[in-house]
Simulated scan of single mutants.
Amino acid sequence: MKIIKDYLDSLFLTVPITPETKKAKEDLLAIMEDHYHELIAEGKSEHEAIGAVISEFGSIDEILAELELEQAEEDEDYPEVDAVSLDEAIDFWAVTRKFAFELSLGILLLALSMSAMMFIGFSELFAFLGILGFSVLAAVGIGFIISGSMKYVREKRKLDDRPLARDVYKEAFFQLENYDKSFRMGLALGIGLCILAIPMSIFFTSIIYAVTLGISAFFATGGVGVFLIVYTSIVRNGFKKMTNGQYFVSDEDHPGPRAMKHSYGSAAPLIITLRKFYWPLVFIFYLFWSNLTGWANSWIIFVIAGIFYSLVSETLKKRK
């Protein structure tokens, strides 16, 4: 339901806050949620249902016209100033796909390098080829991972803490819905290959007594499985990042000032300060308390601190 609520919030960004518009927004949310549950009951997936709900409701202008409400004029403080455009979003998704491929390929090459290492015990020729294969595959794999990660981080920084234009927000839902089937297939096949790697290894090592071949097959099959899991997950997350609220957050643990203000309102500076100093102070207190009373049970401090932090965060968010 959070996705639908966030989408509705984005539609009403420029609508004056009055009792009529608040009631209209609440009524629309209730209608959209009811329709969502109807689609789920018909057998639609979560993302299919969300995409259908959003697509069946018109633009904010059409909604306001039907409700006989007025939209505020845009000014320099309108949240879509400096908004992430659809072209930028498409470029980001392309970079995300490339990063997903390079990272997944790098992991696969590292797995294959371990597979190549298994042959060094056969003969001098195999030992040379195994070491050469390990060195080349590992070096290329690490190169792909580092290169792809750096490009991806740079692209995310360009969009960080910027509002998402409405067409971006809507397109992201459709892309997420369209990719959902590919994601499920890739995830299922990847998990299947990772599981298959174990009996394959057992077959070669225990039945035909080829231990080296069994271990090599384990790394190769598992590597392909991990490739599929990582690739499909990262591509899907690229679409999902554009649906997780009204602002793009490049680092989930460190949202920018705009995203913080959107979530916490006037309490945002307090939350920012809390995130900077809270856990270091908790750690210092943990060391002090452990030295004073012993280390056996002092770990409970982190549990209590985590619960307290969550309660404070949620309370301030609700107050906004």
Rank of each mutant, 00 (worst) to 15 (best):
M1P: 11
I3D: 12
D6M: 10
Y7S: 04
Y7N: 05
L13F: 14
A24C: 11
K25E: 13
E33L: 11
H37V: 10
G43T: 08
G51Y: 01
F57N: 15
F57D: 08
G58F: 02
G58P: 01
S59A: 10
L64Y: 00
A72P: 09
E74S: 15
D75N: 13
S85A: 04
A94F: 14
A100F: 00
F101I: 08
G106C: 05
L109H: 01
M114T: 09
M117Y: 03
G121C: 15
F122D: 13
L125I: 12
F128V: 14
L129P: 03
G130S: 11
L137R: 00
G143F: 08
D161P: 00
R166W: 07
D167W: 05
Q175H: 13
Y179D: 02
K181N: 03
A188S: 13
G192P: 06
L193E: 08
L193T: 11
I195D: 09
A197D: 05
I198D: 07
P199Y: 07
F204V: 04
T205S: 10
S206E: 10
Y209H: 10
G222M: 09
G225C: 08
G225F: 05
I229Q: 03
F239W: 10
F239I: 07
M242W: 00
Y247H: 03
F248I: 07
S250P: 06
D251G: 07
E252Q: 09
R258P: 04
A259M: 02
P269K: 14
L274E: 01
R275I: 01
W279A: 04
P280C: 02
F285Y: 10
Y286R: 03
W289L: 12
N291I: 13
L292F: 15
I300L: 14
F302A: 11
V303N: 12
F308N: 12
R319S: 06
